[in-house]
Structure formats: C-alpha cells, structure tokens
Design a protein around this nucleic acid. Structure first.
Lengths: 221, 221
DNA sequence: TAGCTAACGTACTGGTTCGTACATTAGTGA
DNA sequence: TCACTAATGTACGAACCAGTACGTTAGCTA
C-alpha cells in the first residue's frame, strides 16, 4: 500500500488530485478491512482524510465503486509482488518451496488484503465480477507454478497428478486460513497461528506439506 | 440446522416460546450468513418469521446477542457431528483420511456456517470471546486426532513432528478455503472449487496431501 | 491578468434501521 | 372461572448514514 505523506505545508487549500485520490484509497482500504463493506462508514473514511466526503463521490462515484477501487489496487499489489518472483534457476523442489514461502510471506505481510478478500467473498465476489480491471488481472504465480510442475514431472521428481490452479489453491488455503481465521481459531483452540515465535514452524510446515504431496511415493497406490 | 415446520394451524395467535425462538434463530442464521453482521437487517429477519421484531428483542436482547446465539448453535452442530465420528478401529492412515473426509464433507454441507465463521473473523472473534458457551465448547475432533497421531507415530508410520491442533489447522484450511473463497477464486481463476464434478478430485487431494505430509520419508532431511 | 475549469468545502436531506413504549391476549394455576 | 403472567403485536422515535445541491477557490492558460 503506497502511503501518502506530505511535508507539512502552510494551511490553506492545496490542490493535488493524485494525492487526494491516493489518500482516500489508503484510508478506505483500512476502514473497509477493519469493519467490512457494510460496517465501513463513508463519513469515517472522509474524516480520516485531509479532504471531505464530497471528494469521495467526486473521484469514485459512491461507496460501492470505492470498494471496487480498493480491491483493484490491493490485487494489483500482489500481482506486482508475484511478477518479481524469480525461481526459474532453482531445481523444482526448491522452486516450489520458495514459491510457497513467498505466498506465506505475502499473506502475513498483508492482513488487510486478506480481510478484503474475505469480505469480497461474503458478497459473492460481486465487485470483482463488475470490474474490468480485475477480470483480466491474471496471475503471474500461476505461470510460474505451471513451468515448475512441468519440469518437476519431466525429471520424475513430482509424482502428483495436479495442475497449477489446484496447487495454487492448496498453497493459498494454508496461508489464507492462518491469517484470515486466526481470531476464531485462537479463541476456540487457544493457539495463535500468527505468533511470531511460531512463524518458522508454520512456514516450513507449509513447504513440507506441499513437497510431500508432490513427491509422495505413489507406486503402491 | 433444525428447521421448524408447523402443521398449518387456524389463524390467530399461537404461543410457543420454543418454536418462536427456534424460528428466529433459523432465519437469523440465513440472513447473517447472506449479508454479514452489518449487512443483515433485524427487520428483514423479523419479516421472514411468523413473529415480529419485538420478539427478537424479547428473546435475545439485541442484534449482537442474536448473532452470538446463531454462532453458538452453529458451532454446536459441528461439535455434535464430530462427536459421532468413529475411526478408532481403523489403522492410523485410514483413520486420518477418514477424519479429513468428514471435515471436507461437513464444510461442504454447511456453507452458511463457513460464512458465519468468516464474518466472525472480520469482527475479531468478539462474539466468541464474549460467549461463555463458546469458550468451553472444545473440539472432540482434536482428541481423536491426538489419539490417531500417537498410534501412527508409535507404529512408525507417521514421521511428521506435528501436533493435533496444527494438523487440524492444516485439514481445516483446505476445506475452509474451498468453500469460503470459492467466489473470488472462481472469478479470478475461472475454476469452481465446489463444482460437484470435481468433488471427488478435491476430496482425495486433501487426503493425499495430509497422508503424504504425515508419512513422508524424512531420512534425507 | 482575466477568465476558465478542475478541485474542493459546507450544509443539508431523505430514507433507513435499531431499538422501545405501550397495548393486548393466550394459556395456566388457584 | 378468574386472575395473573409469559408471550405477542403495533406504532413510533431518534440516530445514523449514503448521497447531493450549491457555493467557492486554486492554479493554469490565453
């Protein structure tokens, strides 16, 4: 999330469309993630901004479109992160583990994004469906997984009959659950899934799980 | 969810505290699951009931307490289901697979419950924290996992150093994600994770994953 | 420097929504 | 059968909240 800081200017109205727009998006991201779509208050977002509610409607049109814009930017951030991943030089096992770890790290580093995705699912992904930008956002991670799977199978290391999308779901599910459900899980089972002291434990657990699944001895099946 | 049906009585006011209470809970479960806590409307719940809004406040006190009651009953349903599972007679590998399948089936059969848990996580599990009933609900599944893990490790079949709570998290994460995130996942990747035609595929994928993790050859680590 | 427009602010409205005051009745026990 | 209470219904209020009508100004350009 690109946060907006300004070198305390003299008072009086300053005009900067880009800054105002970005600041609204920043605050809206926090507010929607904090309270959900219906729980979020347009007035509250405006109050925590250096501008007014009028500007939210001026730039985004309404609460619904603002939420869509928040989603679009948040998804854009992961896509960028995914585009930066470079694991082609590693052997398939190491490459998959590295990819899983990157997913793990990204989920942990962006709890607000995880919450937004949960919220969007409560609403049946209606905003994604209504957004052209999100429709064609794709996923660089999928292409990477596809290539790793291929080379892993060629070399005989990977025995699992699984495609990139399903493997992505498997990796994401663990990372997502750990962050998204930490509150109920903690309250019910007394274990904090995002306890920093257990971070390495869960991180390697994920890698072990995925590698074990991909390389399991299937001759006896 | 125990749904309430009545043999169409002659009109006129009927007094049945238990029925009225149960009917409110049924409708509230649907409405909260449909729209989230803040999106749900008390008037809407009342309208879809054979009683009035007044009764919701009479029996539950308010929207917040109604949601807590809905959660309490929903969690009670799984606990009951878990108590019915009988896998002690199976060998550890088969027992774990069976347990994973039961979790898989339960998640798929209760999408409303999954949504409620997502919603409760958005609110930081505040209602669970404020409920005595939910605080001491425990989890029969955990005891079962504990025993299976022990016997699996004794016989040398299981090599993974994992405890019951973490294994439960691993199994739940896959089952939960598949149902909770099906909308965004479907919209972004064009794959329906709850497509009935793919049900067996994902069900066995989960079992394979967990078993592979537990029994992986760790001599080379 | 005049004028134009994108950017911004204020003040308000209309509908919504949780919650309640007050009235009523079904069923039960004396 | 009478009275009492748990259960129910009606009508309303007060706060909240998304959205807007209308007015203002900063900064650019001709």
């Amino acid at each position: 999330m690109t946060s907006v800081e300004e070198p305390a200017r003299p008072n009086g109205r300053i005009r900067d469309a880009a800054r105002t727009r970005a600041e609204i998006l920043d605050v809206a991201t926090q507010e929607f993630a904090r309270a959900g779509y219906d729980g979020a208050r347009v007035d509250e977002i405006a109050a925590r901004t250096r501008t007014t509610k009028r500007m939210i409607y001026y730039y985004f049109g309404g609460k619904e479109q603002l939420f869509t814009a928040v989603l679009e930017r948040s998804y854009g951030v992961i896509r960028e992160a995914e585009q930066g991943l470079d694991v082609e030089h590693l052997d398939p096992v190491a490459a998959i583990r590295r990819l899983a770890e990157l997913t793990f790290d990204h989920h942990e580093a962006h709890p607000d994004f995880i919450r937004l995705v949960s919220i969007e699912n409560i609403h049946g992904a209606a905003h994604i469906a209504g957004s052209e930008k999100l429709g064609r956002i794709g996923s660089p991670a999928l292409d990477v997984i596809r290539r790793i799977l291929e080379s892993g199978r060629e070399s005989g290391l990977f025995t699992a009959d699984v495609d990139a999308v399903d493997l992505h779901a498997m990796i994401s599910s663990f990372c997502f659950f750990r962050v998204a459900n930490r509150h109920t899980f903690g309250a019910l089972f007394g274990r904090d899934l995002v306890d920093p002291a257990q971070r390495e434990h869960y991180r390697s657990m994920l890698g072990d799980m995925v590698i074990a699944y991909l390389t399991a001895d299937r001759t006896t099946d």
